[in-house]
Amino acid sequence: MFEVAIGLGVILVLVILLLLFRVQSLLNVARGSDKKIESTSNRVNGALMLLFFIAAMIAFFWYSISAYDDYSLPVASDHGILTDKMFWITTIITGIVFVLAHALLFYFSFRYQYKESNKALFYPDNHKLEIAWTIIPAIVLTLLVGYGLKVWTQITADPPSEAEVVEVMGYQFAWRVRYPGKDGELGDYDYQLIDAVNEFGMDFTDKDSFDDFVPSEIHVPKGQPVLLKIRARDVLHSVFLPHFRVKMDAVPGMPTRFWFVPNKSTEEMRQETGNPDFNYEMACTEICGRGHFSMRLILVVDEPEDYKKWYDSQEPFLSQNPSYLSKVPEKLLDLASIASGIDNKN
């Protein structure tokens, strides 16, 4: 009943609008006002152009300044400082062009609206002007490109040899990390060896994998280069660490990498943001299916000494899952027991 009433109401309103429209257009015909070009409509549209520009600019500057803290994410990596700086330099340059170009667009629209008495200026070209506004953007862009290239080359350069290596693997729908363990070498893997427990497909015929450990959180030391070795085992994913300005796709069959230097510990960031529960998070930014929006992993930046403590306290995968000893070749069994620490436990 109620719905019917609403439906009738909507129809009534539409009919009234239609009638108003019809009356209005007939009136226009009667008055002949639709023949006039220098009409009220033309003036209103011209005035709205200017009004829109002023209102939009006020809103733009007001929001950009007042909400700065909301939209600017604190930065916690060395290269992030560089890319942020470049972001803001680009913002200043494009911001000037943005405001100026729009000022001209809307001011001209307002200023040069139709007047019966006026005649437009026949001005088909001006080569000097055209050359100027080809060359000036070209120079500005060249500078931006040069600057960008410098930073990009720096970021994508080979990682320092002392970098802490962490393997990150994405799958539907979570991240897993693997550390090389005491020997500092990640063991081989093969996707055909993956099962419900051995999610990485670690190859236990390789002695480097005996001491690899698989924690549930990712820890990295502050102030030291960290090399993420990234892979995926089913579909594309993308590692995104927003505070570190890190993003790199995870591709099945093609390992990728990204290295960075975290420069604020989790503790420091908790103080800076005033949020005692703050945690660095890793997200996925390449559509990967139903749970794309839920691939969260906490990343902890420790002071170097805390990191070492944490690192040393981790138990190798093999020690947690001794049944995988059966995959280890006979002659390496002793080594496996020692490296994974199974011996000590017994």
Partner: peptide
């Protein structure tokens, strides 16, 4: 590099539109 080059002809188009509006007699 190639991508940022494409900004140049795009900018030229915008400036030309602006210059067309300059001292025009605009019917909205």
């Amino acid at each position: 590099i190639l991508t940022l080059i494409i900004a140049v002809p795009s900018a030229v188009k915008v400036f030309n539109y602006l210059a067309t509006l300059w001292r025009a007699n605009i019917r909205f």
